[in-house]
């Protein structure tokens, strides 16, 4: 990457609220804040990891970027063009440049369409090439994800593919349009370790050969560390920490990131395992809507500061930002 990182995607002050249905007896619905004023930049050519637990809002970020959902507030820019308001032709053009790989290849492929139909459909939708050139493009995309020789797979239907092969088809479908930006939402959570590693390496090759930018959404810090240049940690709709991948793993600054790292089982390294111990044994009450998202579970937090005021992301070293009142001065437990 250059010294001057060049953002391809900018998310500014995004807020997303889901309304739950009221009860059948007429009770009121409640608002669930999925994303609470999130801002981040993704640089051209990087693999950016968004790491969070279930319900943290990580998938919502991906869905907002591909315009599968609308934010309640905030703006998203792709190459300096605001995309949340795109319509018609402009939206179609945008969709050609941004593609998504979904979590479950058992559900994201249409069982009644062959591999060729599935991968060539985006070409037809965007009126690219004629039938012969399309076949060439499809075969090329298949080779790039390791489905070769393509002839063996072209006319198969999903039920005759293994999970790993299905996910390769899904990746080929996303890549056949040569998008600039790809969102991979937990692409390996349904796959075995040995197959996951194959998929990880395909994503690394894509970035290398096709200079695509990838947003990798995952619950696994270990997978993010392996793939990503930078990692952002998200908790209950709030960005807690963002920085270079290796730095986040080796010297996390946010108590929540530290608690996550504590919790990951470490094997093959018996002996000296340092624990940060930032997780509170029993949760305390969140004081009000203004408190830090991690306040109820944070050992470091103080009632007066963290319970009253939600910390903003602050740079603690170049490229590394933390949303914690105590990260700057450091804390001892």
């Amino acid at each position: 990457m250059d010294n001057q990182p060049n953002p391809i995607l900018q998310i500014e002050d995004i807020r997303k609220v889901y309304k739950t249905k009221g009860s059948v007896l007429g009770g009121p619905g409640t608002d669930v804040v999925a994303l609470d004023r999130i801002s981040l930049e993704i640089y051209k050519g990087e693999i950016f990891g968004l790491v969070g637990e279930s319900g943290s809002g990580k998938t919502t970020v991906g869905r907002l970027i591909v315009s599968l959902e609308k934010a309640n507030q905030g703006e998203i820019f792709l190459d300096d063009v605001e995309i949340t308001g795109l319509k018609g032709r402009a939206l179609k053009g945008f969709r050609r440049r941004v593609q998504m790989i979904f979590q479950d290849p058992y559900q994201s492929l249409n069982p009644q369409r062959s591999v060729y139909d599935t991968i060539s459909e985006p070409l037809a939708v965007h009126a690219i090439g004629n039938p012969e050139t399309r076949q060439e493009l499809v075969e090329e995309a298949m080779k790039s994800v390791g489905l070769s020789p393509p002839g063996d797979f072209l006319h198969r239907y999903p039920h005759r593919l293994s999970g790993g092969q299905r996910q390769r088809v899904a990746i080929a479908r996303a890549m056949v349009l040569r998008p600039q930006f790809v969102i991979a939402d937990e692409p390996t959570s349904m796959l075995d370790a040995s197959i996951s590693a194959q998929i990880f390496n395909i994503l690394l090759e894509m970035r290398e050969n096709l200079s695509v930018t990838i947003l990798f959404i995952t619950h696994s810090l270990a997978a993010a560390r392996y793939l990503c240049d930078r990692i952002a940690v998200i908790y209950r709709g709030n960005l807690m920490e963002i920085g270079p991948g290796e730095e986040i793993i080796r010297s996390p600054r946010h108590p929540y990131t530290q608690a996550l790292i504590d919790a990951i089982p470490k094997f093959g390294h018996s002996g000296e395992i340092k624990r940060y111990g930032t997780l509170l044994g029993t949760e305390r009450e969140g004081t009000n809507g203004l408190c830090c998202a991690f306040f109820p579970r944070c050992k470091v937090a103080s009632e007066t500061r963290c319970g009253e005021e939600r910390p903003r992301l602050n740079e603690c070293s170049p490229l590394h930002s933390v949303a914690c009142h105590y990260a700057e001065e450091g804390f001892e437990l």
């Binding site: 370790a193 040995s194 197959i195 590693a197 696994s220 560390r225 392996y226 790292i261 470490k266 094997f267």
Partner: peptide
């Protein structure tokens, strides 16, 4: 073992099977 990403040790290339 070598197809499994970890957070300890060096970040070496995973070897898929």
């Amino acid at each position: 073992l070598s197809s499994y990403p970890t957070i300890t040790g060096d970040r070496s290339l995973l070897q898929p099977i």
